[in-house]
Each structure stands twice: as C-alpha cells, then as structure tokens.
Design a protein around this nucleic acid. Structure first.
Lengths: 201, 201
DNA sequence: CGAATTATTGGACAGGTTGTCCATTAATTC
DNA sequence: GAATTAATGGACAACCTGTCCAATAATTCG
C-alpha cells in the first residue's frame, strides 16, 4: 500500500531519481484516474498538473495506461483477504461478498473496468495487469476452492480452475458487459446456485 | 447480415443518402477493424481510405467506435443459433462449444474484446452494444436454461439469470481477462462442472 | 576537488485525430 | 424552377504522442 517508494535501493553513480517527483506523478495520476477515468490519464495532462517535465514520465512509464495502472496499484491496492473458516461455502460467500462490494464501489469498479478495457487494445498493459492483479487473485481463489475440495466439500471431478471463472469470472462478466448488475445478492446467488445443484442444502 | 442498407424508407424532399457511400464506409471500416483492431478505426482513416468526405462520417456515426460496431454488425453478425434437442446438457454443450469456437476465432474474438473494451470508456457505445449484441444473446441463453428447468433437468431453486453468467459470462471473463484460455475443452468443462456437482453422471 | 554519471528540465517539432465551421456542388421532390 | 437534403473539400484550433536536444542538478568515484 504505497510504502515501497521511500528508499528502493542503492544507486550506483549519478543523480538519484527524486522520490518527491515520483510521488507527485503518482498522486496526480491517481486523481485524474479516479475523477476522469483511465482514458483521461495522459502524459501531457499529468505532467502539467503535477508540475513535472513530460520527459520524466516518458522515462519511467511505458504508456499513459501503464502509468494509470501504477497509480491504481499505488493508491488502491487492496488486501486480497485470504482468511478461511474451514467451511467452503462460508468462505466462498464472505470472499465473494467482499469482492463484489469492492467492484461495485463506483470509483473502484470503474477503474478496474477501465484498466481491463484498455488492456483489450494494449497487450503490454494486459501483461502488467496479469502479473500484478489477475494472477495473484486467481491463485488465491483457486486455493480456496482446492482446500474445500480436499476437505471433501467439492467432488474431486470438479475442475477448480474452471470453477474460478464460474464464480469470480462471472462477477467480471457482470462488471464488463453492458447491463450487468453487480451486488451482494449476485454474490450470494452464485454460491446458492452451486449448492442448489449439489443438493447440499 | 448486411441486408438492411439497400432501400430503407421513402425520403421526403432533398437528395437521398447514397447507399453506395454508406456501403463503402462500412466495408472500409470492416477492413480496418479486422486488420488493425477497434482502436484503429478512426473517422480520418476510414474517410481517406474509402474516398469519402470526413464530414459524411460525422453525420452518420456518433463516434469512431460506433462506426466500428456498425461495421461489425454489418459484416460479422452471426446466427444466434437457437436450436434445441430437448436435453438440457446436450443443448448446453453444443451451444457453448459453438459460442467458444466463435470467440476463440482470433479475428472475431479480438473484435468482440476490442468493442467491449472500448465500451468501458464510452457509455453510449455500451448502450449500443447492449441493444444489438448483449441483450438478445443473453435472452437466448436464459431461454435455453429456463426450458431445461421446466423439463425438470435443473432444480427450481436455481437462479437462471445468474447461471447465465456462470456459463456464458465465464467465457467472457476468459476472453477479457489477461491469461484467459478459451477453447472447446473449457466449454465442455463448464457443463461438466455443473453435472459433477449435481451428481447426474 | 574534479570528473563521470544519471536525473530532470524546458523547449521544440512533426504527425495524427478530433470537432467544428463554411461555401460549394449534387440529387431529389414539390 | 424552388426548396430541401446529401455530400464534398478545405480550413482551423486543440490535444496527445513520440522524439530530439541542450542545459542544469545531484550524486558517486578517483
């Protein structure tokens, strides 16, 4: 949570990068990001608003979208909450409820949707998102399911990797497809549907 | 399927819109769309390539993305295939297999992903996609499930609207999230997971 | 201290896209 | 022939990108 920008490492020779400058860039980018969306985060605008040379941005960030992602991570990195109670269905409900609560918070949801939207035209951005956002979250989700499977709460024949998409992926579909409604009831029903099928009421 | 541009309706007074011009615009936009992606479909480029005045594009299309969507619908509108065999699980497998086959066809998948990506920054485009693409497909999917539910192949307690997201939505998640693998095996496993849970092997 | 090294700045430039304006020409109906 | 609508071509300011360059600042090494 924005605690890794104070003193990164020993530099060799020349003038060290200014932590002050980097901080102002990320703060300004975060403001533009939350107020105007990813597509408005532009090198030109951020540089002018932050009172920083545009060249510095070109040196540190691959693209405006990449800067927006860095600002997002720096400011809104959330906790990944990996707690577990020992009961699969309880874990799923609390985890999915929190997840949906985050994504349906207008500002955060719009930022995630905007970043994923930009990634559709920007393979490099997709790679960055995969590394810092998608992959760790997907890992945690699969782990949760695997634990339940090992406790016998899920048939061994269930494909956990696919089930991740049938729970968390379904939430992203509601976030990204037009007309999608994303609320706590949706999270609950995702789990309820599985239980209804398995008859474990 | 590009059959609604020949003679739309009687015009009142002045010079009628040129079907020839409209055709060239949509064809050129479709070429740019499939070759370079949604983000490269620009009024300037399409107008120059089509040999048409840029002003004409501004008159007929709300935005470049809207033009890209029109070109997509005009050229690549697919069939919605609503056939049904009477068995839910068979219907689901064939339907989802075809759906995934379409989306994983590189050009078509990239176009859908690009359009949905652009819609994240363009609410008006999201509305257009909802009306012409998302809503009818979602309706068909829900209908398929409801029919199965009425035949007793799905518990009455299952929420069909949510289950749509757990099947088709999961495919969109794989399409739109980085690292997602979308193939026939995924389609089969989506259905297999539900059957594994319900124990109806 | 001085030299080498790296960061940052400010300015400049061409290229592309948008959005808008205007005058002109073309086609069609009344 | 007059009114009406479509289409054209050109122009303009505004913004963003990507790149180049010269000048200045901060830090380490010899």
């Amino acid at each position: 949570m924005a605690r890794n920008d104070t003193e990164p490492a020993k530099r060799g020779r020349g003038r060290p990068p200014s932590a002050e400058v980097r901080r102002r860039i990320l703060e300004t980018a975060a403001v533009v990001l939350v107020e105007n969306g990813v597509s408005e985060v532009t090198f030109d605008k951020v540089a002018r608003r932050a009172g920083v040379s545009r060249m510095t941005l070109y040196k540190w960030f691959r693209s405006p979208a990449s800067l927006a992602l860095a600002a997002f991570e720096d400011t809104y990195a959330d906790s990944l909450r990996p707690e577990s109670t020992g009961d699969l269905w309880t874990d799923l409900r609390t985890h999915l409820r929190g997840f949906v609560a985050d994504l349906s918070e207008p500002r955060l949801g719009a930022m995630v949707a905007g970043l994923l939207g930009s990634a559709q035209h920007d393979p490099a951005l997709a790679g960055e998102i995969s590394g810092s956002y998608t992959r760790p979250r997907r890992e945690g989700a699969a782990e949760l399911l695997r634990a339940g499977q090992e406790r016998g709460q899920l048939p061994a024949s269930v494909d956990v990797e696919v089930l991740v998409d049938q729970l968390w992926g379904a939430c992203y579909a509601r976030l990204l497809l037009p007309e999608g409604v994303l609320d706590e009831a949706f999270a609950d029903t995702l789990v309820a549907n599985l239980r209804a099928l398995s008859g474990t009421d």
